[in-house]
Amino acid sequence: MEALQKKAQELLTTCRANVVIGYGQGSDDKPRAIFVTDPAGADKLIFNDTCKQNLGVYLMKAEVKKLGKMGIFATKPVMRTVVLLASENQLTDIDVTVIGVNEDGSLVDFENLQALENHVKTITFEPDPADKAKIEAIEKMTVEERWAYWQDQLSKCFKCYACRSACPMCYCSRCTVECNQPQWIPVPSHHLGNFEWHMMRAMHLVGRCIECGECGRACPLDLPVHLLTQKMAADARKDFGWQAGMSLKLENPLSSFKPDDKESFIK
């Protein structure tokens, strides 16, 4: 923790960052995101294994960007988030300095995004085993069972959009669901509206979801919406050998064309 605080001070005093995004102490022993702009405030930074929120979401928040160059303490999912956002031309070396935080709390100082990409390519990412098991259980269901399962889950959704707001990849300034003249997908949180919303969200994240699980954690109703995007990520891995947030080159399977793309789905 001391190393982390020292690193934040160093970033701020050497102007490698004007604001450092990290975790601090929140309510009832929960961690929360904090934004350190003054080296004297760096002692508020903490890190432990309850620090799960994907802080990458703040790299896209206008009010945070306005503070200047952002330094971020990045766990594995956040590293991938930064690489993905950079590949989509949302971040450059001018915007962000990344300090990797390994599971044991040790730090990796990345000189630039290229160094981050090089590092990310050397580490393996396994989806959360509990979530993987849940996805497999859902895959084993019959179509009717699966339909009933998602009907039950998604009918509870009241469209607070915490899933969207918590996701660093959902950075559109105007989401399709908010266009109502004409309506693309139904805005109300009735059954059809909820189904279309969650399907659209999952589809927009194919090959972009870095499997941090933040959407599911953010849901106040505890709906397993992260399983939808993680299933898409698993499919992208299986069908295209693609894992999001591993390369600075924009090669997302659904938005890039290759002459040797598989066409086995055309029947």
Binding site: R32, F35, K61, E63, C160, A162, A166, P220
Partner: peptide, 17 residues
């Protein structure tokens, strides 16, 4: 207000509960 809301991600969870 800025200090308080810096970590707010602008969802509607608070209003809906």
């Amino acid at each position: 207000w800025s200090r308080q809301s810096m970590r707010c991600i602008g969802c509607g969870a608070c209003a809906y509960v």
